[in-house]
Design a protein around this nucleic acid. Structure first.
Length: 222
DNA sequence: CACCAGGCAAGTA
DNA sequence: TACTTGCATGGT
């Protein structure tokens, strides 16, 4: 990334935002659904998560109280379409225990915590890593955090904006250090990067044909 | 058929 | 610290 990081990042944002418009993410009816979705979508296509969410809704299990009551094995079968269903049932249970024991299942009480405190607490839960924690913080609680994910890394690497193999922490710090801490900005920025990232394949050769290559190189110095 | 998807934890060296 | 592996369904 060049010397004026802020300008380059904002240039990318403006470019994508103008091109794709407001994507209004996260797709969910309420904050608890965001939290569940954040766990279910780990390394999984969102279309599969939708099936699991629908199954939970149909059984009226999409609340902290209901999900606390149901058995882990039973829960696993219901979320089966989302993949890794035994692991994810355990992770959901861990999260519910955290929410119940720490906040009596009260989402507002959870979100009332300060950003740094809540982030640390979320990261201590088995099954909640940086991306899941940040997704919950931003999209469920409205906290101003930037979410770094596989797409963010791939896009920035592919356009030589960051060195190869940069960690998620470094990438997140890049955005946090150079952009205003604005939840609305981070919300839309991450949405745009995920939306854009779907056009990128893992391996470079194929990706070089991606339609957004031109778009980036017109405006973004490398 | 192969490859991939909005990760994470546990094990190994 | 820095890799490797298991976890699993569903779409292209």
């Amino acid at each position: 990334m060049g010397m004026d990081c802020r300008k380059e990042l904002l240039a990318i944002y403006e470019l994508l935002n103008t091109h794709f418009g407001d994507l209004h993410w996260w797709p969910a009816d309420d904050p608890f659904e965001v939290m569940v979705g954040a766990i279910l979508t780990q390394n999984t296509a969102w279309s599969n998560v939708e099936k699991a969410i629908a199954a939970l809704k149909q059984r009226e299990l999409l609340s902290p109280e209901a999900m606390a009551r149901i058995g882990e094995e039973k829960l696993a079968e219901i979320i089966r379409p989302s993949g890794y269903y035994r692991v994810k049932a355990k992770r959901l249970k861990e999260f519910i225990r955290f929410l119940t024991e720490g906040y009596c299942g009260d989402i507002d009480a959870l979100c009332a915590e300060s950003l740094p405190t809540l982030r640390e607490k979320l990261l201590r839960i088995r099954g909640v890593g940086p991306e899941t924690a940040d997704s919950i913080l931003l999209y469920a609680c409205g906290k101003p955090v930037f979410i770094s994910d596989a797409y963010t890394q791939r896009i920035l690497e592919r356009h030589n904006l960051i060195p190869e193999g940069a960690t998620g922490d470094r990438i997140r710090a890049l955005f946090l250090d150079h952009l205003p801490h604005d939840a609305a900005l981070f919300n839309q920025f991450h949405a745009l990067l995920v939306y854009t990232g779907k056009n990128y394949c893992r391996k470079k050769p194929k990706c070089m044909a991606c339609p957004l290559r031109i778009l980036f190189q017109q405006r973004v110095p490398v």
